[in-house]
């Protein structure tokens, strides 16, 4: 099918089989390999993207669900200030080890921070509970999200004054 949707702020048109998995469409057809596949069954969260502002698992989405959707992948994160601050916090707080869970983790964290701008550590863990990491034990990832929340609030406060 021929589909039109918005990807990282730009309208794009692609040809894809109806049932092509969105994770494959992103990685193989569009060359956006930032979104990863870790299990293909919705258990690990490595394939997390934002669709219409909500986190979704692209390994359990098909192309036919894309028309009209606004999709954000890790490649489009830094176009917004909060995404850029979150990514920087991951880098600086030691939240990245092997890095394979990182894009999905950042997407889930971004979705969380857009719903709750001052989450407790427990709320952060809850928000990341659908994203598996095998390297970090999550401690520094929670540190990063906590720090990003603070950075984003400060940035917003400065903008408002």
């Amino acid at each position: 099918m021929h589909l039109t949707f918005t990807l990282n702020g730009n309208e794009i048109q692609v040809e894809a089989a109806d049932d092509r998995r969105v994770v494959d469409l992103l990685r193989e057809d569009l060359g956006l390999t930032g979104t990863k596949e870790g299990c293909g069954t919705g258990e690990c969260g490595a394939c997390t993207i934002l669709a219409d502002g909500e986190s979704r698992l692209s390994c359990l989405m098909v192309a036919a669900q894309l028309p009209g959707a606004h999709i954000t992948t890790v490649e489009g994160m830094t176009a917004q200030t909060d995404g850029a601050l979150l990514q920087q916090a991951f880098v600086e707080e030691g939240a990245v080890q092997c890095g394979f869970c990182t894009p999905g983790m950042e997407m889930a964290a971004l979705a969380l921070l857009r719903q709750d701008d001052a989450p407790s550590r427990d709320t952060i863990r809850e928000g990341l509970s659908g994203n598996l990491c095998r390297c970090t034990g999550y401690v520094k990832i929670v540190d990063a999200v906590e720090r990003a929340a603070s950075d984003i609030r400060s940035c917003r406060d400065r903008e408002n004054t």
Binding site: G31, F90, V91, G94, E106
Partner: peptide, 23 residues
């Protein structure tokens, strides 16, 4: 010193190419 890891920026931005990302 707790220097920032050299690979963190590319991994955090999704630009780091793992073997799985080679097509």
């Amino acid at each position: 010193r707790p220097e920032i890891r050299g690979d963190a920026p590319t991994k955090a931005s999704g630009r780091e190419r793992f073997a799985a990302d080679c097509y």
